[in-house]
């Protein structure tokens, strides 16, 4: 039997503030004393109003933001990595194999077709090009992105189409940890249902997820636990 630890993400005593040098060194506290953990196959949703620091927490786990204090421990195979002080090289490796991030907005790359954008994370994990493109096509079909768009760069797509390309890119590869930053923000009901299915499949595969979801139906359908981020509000 596998003796992989059940806890995939452990956040402890995490704190974040922004220092705005261009505004005379103004210090903006975001969150402090953030403590929670996520287990194999669990989807934890961060709750709280806009501006309460949900996205900042997610971005710190992905090492997109730095933190001022605390630890973010990630289980990577048989190693435990503290994202808060890992080297850039280690973070890049974690992002290839271990932590995925489904962002709210697609960062389109000039001239790169939608299908390639979606297939890229698979190829980065060593999947052959043919298979990567085939799986990318299947996932785009599932998300109702018409085939005539696949070979076009998504810069000119509608908001909903871009987001579905982005979701496909985020969900296509297997990462033991997946971060969801409002993946359903501008989707219609049919596509929201597809995302709920995709999340369900990830859970079955044991993926640990942390998400931000404003849509109540989706949240109720996928959340195993809701953490109220306002309890981490910095005492300013």
């Amino acid at each position: 039997m596998s003796n992989t630890p059940k806890t995939k993400v452990l956040v402890s005593d995490l704190a974040k503030s922004f220092k705005m040098h261009l505004q005379g060194g103004l210090e903006i506290p975001v969150v402090s004393s953030v403590n929670f953990s996520v287990s194999v196959g669990e989807c934890v949703v961060l709750g709280g109003p806009s501006g309460s620091g949900k996205s900042s927490i997610l971005k710190m786990i992905y090492a997109n933001y730095r933190c001022q204090k605390g630890q973010i421990l990630i289980t990577d195979g048989d190693e435990i990595v503290n994202v808060a002080d890992a080297t850039p090289r280690r973070i890049i490796r974690l992002r290839e194999t271990t932590i995925g991030y489904v962002s709210q907005f697609l960062r389109a790359i000039p001239r790169v077709p939608a299908l390639t954008l979606v297939a890229e994370p698979l190829m980065a994990q060593g999947v052959a090009e043919d298979e990567a493109f085939e799986r990318a096509g299947k996932l785009l079909s599932r998300l109702n992105v018409p085939e005539r768009l696949w070979q076009l760069p998504p810069a000119t797509f509608s908001g909903g189409e871009q987001q579905r390309v982005n979701i496909a890119r985020g969900f296509i590869a297997h990462y033991p940890i997946l971060l969801l930053d409002e993946p359903t923000a501008s989707l219609d009901a049919a596509n929201r249902a597809v995302v709920v299915e995709l999340v369900e499949e990830k859970k079955q595969q044991g993926v640990a997820m942390v998400g931000i979801l404003h849509d109540h139906d989706v949240r109720d359908a996928i959340a195993d636990r809701i953490i109220d981020v306002t309890s981490f509000a910095s005492a300013a």
Partner: peptide, 21 residues
């Protein structure tokens, strides 16, 4: 110095914040 997206999205130094903004 650091990861590219981290430095650009969460710049720490005054001058980097000026460049990014």
């Amino acid at each position: 110095s650091g990861l590219t997206d981290q430095v650009l999205d969460d710049p720490q130094e005054s001058y980097t914040q000026l460049l990014v903004s």
